[in-house]
Design a binder for these strands. Structure first.
Length: 320
DNA sequence: TAAGCGTGGGC
DNA sequence: TGCCCAAGCTT
């Protein structure tokens, strides 16, 4: 059985396999992973042709740091209510925040609204196909730009989300987890593994993400179901546990973030402006409560109406 | 570069 | 039960 070569000294010094290693890995990994995807791809609404580029973009914003199962119902509501960027841009940003519901990170709703506005005003209402134009939109970073260009327009891009990074860390580099931040070595690996053909590359991006989401998971990976188990460098090395700095955790309890969430929940569920007293009720400590509210206002998620009265924003936030 | 930013499900 | 994690972006 052919296998991916042992990690070389050069690979260790650069934090990843060299181009030749990656090229060999590509020959071994492409077919099994693409075939596996053919059989195991989930039927997700944003993968259907009728989703279109706007549906893909909406899904990508919602899926940032948020599980598929929680996105599904909100995605259906959003795309039914706002089938085009222009439709979303025509409504107040606060409506986007309200419809975001409990997906979390509500600044994403604001940024998606701002992206819809930019698309309407400077791209004729059509989601741009160009990677650089996508990257320039609010809330669109390296991953989302590559994902929309790849999934909506079939272009050839290295799409590196947490799933893909983990799959490559294990299968190619031979470690359990990638580094906290994306490294240059990871980008080289991802590019070296990208199939030459545009259509195949786009499918490869979706396939590697799906493999990471369904089989090569962060905890308790289902290696017995893995199409490239025989070639996996991490597995061949004996599945060594993560060795290095701790993976970045997330604190939440007692933080401003928690208070912001409680405050915004009150405003989302209200039909109109909310008096200060209703907001004061959700958190006892006044200094932190005031700081959290100020932060929401500064972010454009909350708009002061009058003295001691607040609402979800009717107007876009002023640039800071 | 690292910290801040929500929420809820699974083990 | 707590802790870990989930298709990141911005400053």
């Amino acid at each position: 059985m052919p296998r991916i070569p042992e990690t070389t000294d050069a690979a260790r010094s650069t934090g990843g396999p060299n181009a030749a290693d990656a090229a060999r890995a590509a020959g071994l990994l492409h077919e099994p992973i693409l075939d596996w995807f053919e059989e195991n791809a989930r039927d997700l609404p944003w993968r259907r042709p009728e989703a279109g580029p706007w549906g893909v973009m909406v899904s990508e914003f919602m899926l940032q740091q948020t599980p598929v199962s929680r996105v599904l119902p909100v995605y259906e509501q959003w795309t039914a209510r706002w089938p085009t960027p222009a439709a979303l841009a025509a409504d107040p940003p606060g409506e986007a925040v309200r419809a975001w519901g409990r997906l979390g990170y509500p600044r994403r709703a604001l940024r998606l609204h701002a992206a819809a506005t930019a698309i309407t005003e400077t791209h004729g209402g059509e989601v741009p196909e160009d990677h650089a134009a996508l990257l320039a939109l609010p809330g669109v970073g390296e991953y989302t730009a590559a994902a929309v260009a790849s999934f909506a327009f079939g272009q050839r891009h290295a799409v590196m989300d947490t799933n893909v990074r983990r799959v490559f860390a294990r299968a190619v580099t031979g470690v359990e987890y990638p580094a906290n931040a994306t490294t240059a070595a990871e980008r080289r690996t991802a590019h070296a593994l990208l199939p030459d053909d545009e259509t195949t590359a786009a499918r490869w991006a979706a396939a590697t993400m799906e493999l990471g989401a369904l089989v090569c998971t962060a905890r308790s990976p289902q290696c017995a179901r893995c199409p490239v188990l025989a070639h996996c460098s991490w597995r061949l090395a004996g599945s060594p546990p993560h060795d290095g700095p701790p993976r970045r955790g997330q604190t939440y309890a007692g933080t401003d973030r928690q208070v912001r969430g409680k405050l915004l929940a009150v405003l989302r569920e209200a039909t109109g402006p909310v008096p200060q007293a209703a907001l004061d009720a959700v958190w006892d400590e006044p200094v932190q409560r005031a700081r959290a509210l100020d932060g929401l206002v500064a972010d454009g998620l909350v708009e002061p109406v009058a003295d001691g009265v607040y609402r979800l924003p009717l107007t876009p936030a002023a640039p800071r």
